[in-house]
């Protein structure tokens, strides 16, 4: 019997290694897997590369992970946002490596990783500071830059409903990066609001099929 549900956080985080690239879902706080981020803080892996749209806020969650010195590098589109104090402190002090990626290029680099596309050309960012030094080529008269796929060792995602096969549904704009990240990592861990019996999720509503998901932890968002 396939059963991807795990009993507790320790089982969810098992084997997460130092030096891992961790994809973290969410757009701001919506659809962010807060419990799994806390689980990662507790688990102890260090020297991490974090891929997320934002760089955390306040001194909890991703910001706490960074403050503890466990993050070597962050890859994101919009690190500076309301309350991103820890990021700004560490970045100014030179204690955090930053790779800024246009938001759509960030999503597409992970989609590419999940779809077996090693690299692709895009006009986004051509002629800007963010693509300096990248190979360029012209297609249909339009200059483009070469962008590489961005695979993760681990993806931490938040979803609404799941079943024991790891099929996932989402809530409104809480979907955001989660399905893309689930595709792009070797190990995908989902934090979900509810687990339904196999066969009760409407197949038409499943956004992330279980093939992309390895572990499911029940953790209803308050």
């Amino acid at each position: 019997m396939i059963n991807k549900t795990v009993r507790d956080m320790a089982e969810a985080m098992q084997g997460l290694a130092d030096g891992a690239t961790v994809l973290v879902g969410g757009f701001g706080s919506v659809g962010q897997p807060d419990a799994l981020i806390d689980g990662l803080i507790e688990q102890g892996a260090k020297d991490l590369t974090i891929v997320a749209n934002n760089a955390g806020a306040g001194r909890v969650g991703l910001a706490r992970l960074m403050e503890l010195g466990r993050v070597r590098k962050i890859i994101c589109s919009f690190p500076r946002s309301a309350g991103s104090v820890v990021f700004e402190e560490l970045y100014k002090a030179g204690k955090l490596e930053l790779e800024i990626v246009p938001q759509g290029t960030l999503a597409e680099r992970m989609r590419a990783a999940g779809a077996g596309v090693p690299a692709f050309y895009t006009p986004t960012g051509y002629g800007t500071l963010l693509t300096e030094g990248k190979p360029t080529a012209e297609f249909n008269g339009r200059p483009c830059v070469l962008e590489h796929a961005l695979p993760g060792d681990v993806a931490l995602v938040q979803a609404h409903k799941a079943d024991r096969w790891g099929n996932l549904t989402y809530r409104r704009s809480g979907r955001n990066f989660n399905p893309v990240m689930a595709m792009a990592a070797k190990l995908t861990i989902a934090q979900v609001d509810m687990i339904e019996p196999l066969g009760t999720l409407d197949p038409e509503e499943v956004v992330t099929p279980g093939i992309f998901v390895d572990r499911v932890l029940l953790h209803p968002v308050a």
Binding site: S77, F78, P79, R80, S81, S84, F87, E88, Y91, K92, L98, I100, V101, P102, Q103, G104, T105, T124, G125, T128, L130
Partner: peptide
């Protein structure tokens, strides 16, 4: 602390 979001896309 630069931030670009979706502007370039």
């Amino acid at each position: 602390a630069p931030a670009v979001g979706g502007a370039m896309d």
